[in-house]
Structure formats: C-alpha cells, structure tokens
Design a protein around this nucleic acid. Structure first.
Lengths: 243, 243
DNA sequence: CTGCTTCTGTTCGCCACCGAACATTCGCGT
DNA sequence: ACGCGAATGTTCGGTGGCGAACAGAAGCAG
C-alpha cells in the first residue's frame, strides 16, 4: 500500500499548489533512510531538507554526559530542517532515523528560495512549525509530570500515527534512548502493556493489538498534540485529494 | 536606568529598520503588566501581540489536573504571540506575567501585515521563534534529566538575563509553579543556594550575590539556550546602537 | 547444530522527589 | 504596635525511577 516513491506520500509536498510543485518536484531526490542514520548533528550546517515518505525521524538532544531525550518526532506529515527557513541554519539537536524507510531530499537553497516567495509553502511550513512547537512543549510537560508507562503509550501512538501502520520495528533500548529513561523502565512498562493485551512485542517488533485502550492509558499529552496537528494542518489529512 | 516607555527597550522593536518603525511605532501602546496577569489563555484567539520592555512573561502549560510547567520565558528580547504570524492564531499554552513591568501592545492584524511584507521584521521574528524553540526543547531535556537544584539555577539565570538586574520579585511558590515542582523542593534548593552565599532571598525578593558560582551550579541547559539566543539574535544585543 | 550476539527479564539498594501536615516568621494594613 | 495572612521552614513515610549486575531467550552466522 505504501508507495515510498510518490512525493504525495508526504503531506506537505502533497498540499503544494501546482506551480510550486512544478518548481520543486524535479529537484526532489528519493533517498533511503536506514535505521540509525543521523541526518544532521547538533550545530552542523544543514545542506538539505528531508520530506519523509515512509520513515520516521526523531529530533533529540544529546547532553554532555551522553544522556539524551527526544524532543519531537517527524514523519510523513512534516519536514526535517526547519532551521533552514527559520533563518538559524543550524540547531543544537540531532536528527536520527528512528524507523527505516524513504524520504525526499531537497537542496536547502531551493527550499529557502521557495519559502521566500511567500506562497503556500511558506504558510504550510510555518503552520507545521507551530505544530512542532506544540509537540516540543508537550514533551517538556510530559517529562515533568508523567510516568514512564504513560509516556511509552504516548510515544507508541505518536510513532504509529506517522507510519499508518500497527507495527513498529524498534527495540526497547532505542525507545529508552528516545524517552530519556533506562531500558529496564521500558521493559517493565512494555511488559505491563503486553500482559494487559494491548500490544505484542518480540525482539524489536512491536504490534499494537488494542489501540483504544492504549490511548486510554496514555497521558493527555498525546491527545493535545494530535488535536493541534489536526487543527493546524487539516487539509494535509487528505492532501492527495487536493492534488 | 530602565525606561519602560522607550520602545527601544525591546530588542525586536529596536532592531527594526526605519521604514518598519515608522509604520509600527505609532500603533504601539504602552501597557502596564501586573504580576499574575494572564495575557492569553490556552486556545484563546490572540487579539494583540506584546513586546515586553521591563516585564517577564512565562509561557506555561496547565494540565487537566491543574499541574503546570513553564515551557519558555519571554522578556525584552522577544515577543508574546508568535502563533499569530505562524498562522495558528492560538496555542494550547497560557501566557502569564511572571515579573511585573511594562510592555508594548500591538494589534495582531498590524503585526501580521508587517510580517507579510517579508522584510526585516519577518526575519527577526522567525529567528526569535527559532531561539524560543531551542528554549522549549532544552526545557524538555532539563525536565527529564536534571535536579531541582540545577533547574532552579537555570531558571534564575534565564529570568535575570531578561531583567538586566540582579534582583527578582518572586515567591518560591510561584517558582515552583513555573518549574512544575513542589514548593518545598524550591525552598530546599533555594536554602542551599542561600547558605552557600550565592543568593539572598526574603519573602518574595531574591537577590543574586554571586552570579559566576550560580552559573557553575546550573546545568548546561542555561548555557545552551543563552548561546543560541546570542547566535540567532546577535544584533539585538545592542539594538539601541543600530537605531 | 552450535555458538555468539542481541534483546529482554529480573533483582537489589539507593535517592530525589512527592504528598501531606504542621510550625514558624515576616511584613503589611489599620 | 498588633494581628493576620502570606511566605518560608521542617518533618515523615511512600514511591518511581536510577545504576549496576546478571540471567534467560531468541535469532543469526558459520
């Protein structure tokens, strides 16, 4: 069902008006995104932006002592490299492929040029950025107030939404890095979810069996973020039809 | 020394080129910002944006159960109401005056019009927004990994930087709300700082006595955010001179 | 099939922070 | 100058997550 090679797989690309599409599509390169690939490192200048089609990318901060925490997750609803059009050129975060797949790559300068035309792409990108801000802010709150159990549910749901699937390929170790907790904590939380029959997992393969109950178990943070994405990017939901 | 009525007190306003200034300054209203004032509530449509001159405003998320956490702090380096030009019109957060003072208020539409001219103001606002994103992301990481002691230091420093002063008017109860921790936790952390001779406080009045040691005690989060603000908004540091 | 690596499960002591309850002290208003 | 409310100080048991160490189990390579 997934057609990674179709730019419309990415909601932002799909929502572009015809002229913008004609300008940009010829420059899009479909690139494979292997698990663990680092798209950019903290402070590095960005050469390209990426529009995920079938992959998921995590934005995470890595601290001096090596501890890390995910601050947002980007899938086919978004773009990697907002610092380019925001004007900063770099950010202090790392972008890491969290779920393998494909993405469309575009030279940074081309994106900036199109952004500066102040057309639909600019509006799309700014609204997307606002949604991303919401996700980061909610992550901050969630880190402060919620248990690992709740955060795991939130994280699974956010990731699944970006894959249009009920399965993830992801070890508990990696999830722990994303959440910024110990691997054992994830094992325990995931164990509870499995015995409750909400998910099934085995050696890096996670399947969601009962999504409604998973949502019920997540903290409000998931719903807040989802609602805000839907509000800010409504036409992207069925962007293909607008094409 | 502080001249709240001078728009140049705000770094963004100060950095505007002459033409933009001529368009906007006549519409600026100096308004008092009393402690505890709520500039906007989660989900409310914004009518105005605010350019703080001598006040500090906290952006915070309030959860269903009443728990809260600050996600960013805005002073005279910034603006309240980025959702207006980002296109979302609202955000799920609350803006609360954390330190009384004054700000310049501008009708939302006027700001949007000026933003859409794609001139210097647009660049300034986007870069400021990126700096704000950094602050939120760092808050998320800090909430995950650092102790209340460290976070208190970070918070004091961020606040002081926005007041150009070594004194704050702020009870421990309010600080606790901002940090999303218990008041007792703040009492304890502040007590340590006081016995170490780094600060002095008494009934809502906090004075920093030894800033270098306070910085040494803060987590890296403070430095990361400060560095990023300086990098993204360098000309704002002495915006007055550019006028 | 064998052995090795990777992933997952489990345990233990430890500590920061929580929630609640209560004591104290300061300073403002009248 | 007195009294009340707000701000700060202190204590206690409880607990969620940490750090470390190790044991089983599932898949892959040869």
């Amino acid at each position: 069902m997934l057609k990674p090679a179709d730019p419309h797989q990415n909601h932002i690309l799909a929502a572009l008006p015809a002229e913008a599409r004609e300008r940009l599509y010829p420059h899009l390169e479909l690139v494979p995104m292997p698990l663990g690939d680092v798209l950019y490192e903290s402070g590095n200048r960005l050469r390209h932006v990426y529009f995920p089609s079938t992959c998921i990318v995590s934005l995470l901060y890595v601290m001096e002592d090596g501890a890390s925490a995910e601050i947002a997750v980007v899938g086919n609803e978004g773009i990697i490299g907002i610092a380019l059009f925001m004007g900063g050129e770099t950010t202090p975060s790392r972008a890491l492929v969290q779920s393998a797949g494909h993405a469309f790559r575009l030279k940074g300068q081309l994106l900036k040029d199109e952004f500066n035309r102040s057309g639909e792409l600019q509006h799309l990108l700014l609204r997307y950025t606002q949604a991303l801000i919401t996700q980061m802010a909610q992550t901050a709150v969630c880190n402060r107030h919620h248990s690992v159990d709740q955060q795991l549910c939130r994280w699974l749901l956010l990731s699944l939404d970006r894959l249009s699937s009920d399965r993830l390929t992801m070890t508990q170790e990696l999830i722990a890095n994303m959440l910024g907790v110990r691997r054992e904590g994830v094992t325990e939380a995931a164990g509870k979810l499995q015995s409750a029959g909400l998910i099934h997992y085995s050696r890096g393969r996670i399947t969601v069996l009962d999504r409604p109950r998973l949502e019920a178990r997540a903290c409000e943070c998931y719903a807040v973020v989802k609602k805000e994405f839907d509000r800010l990017l409504p036409h992207l939901v069925d962007g293909r039809k607008r094409a």
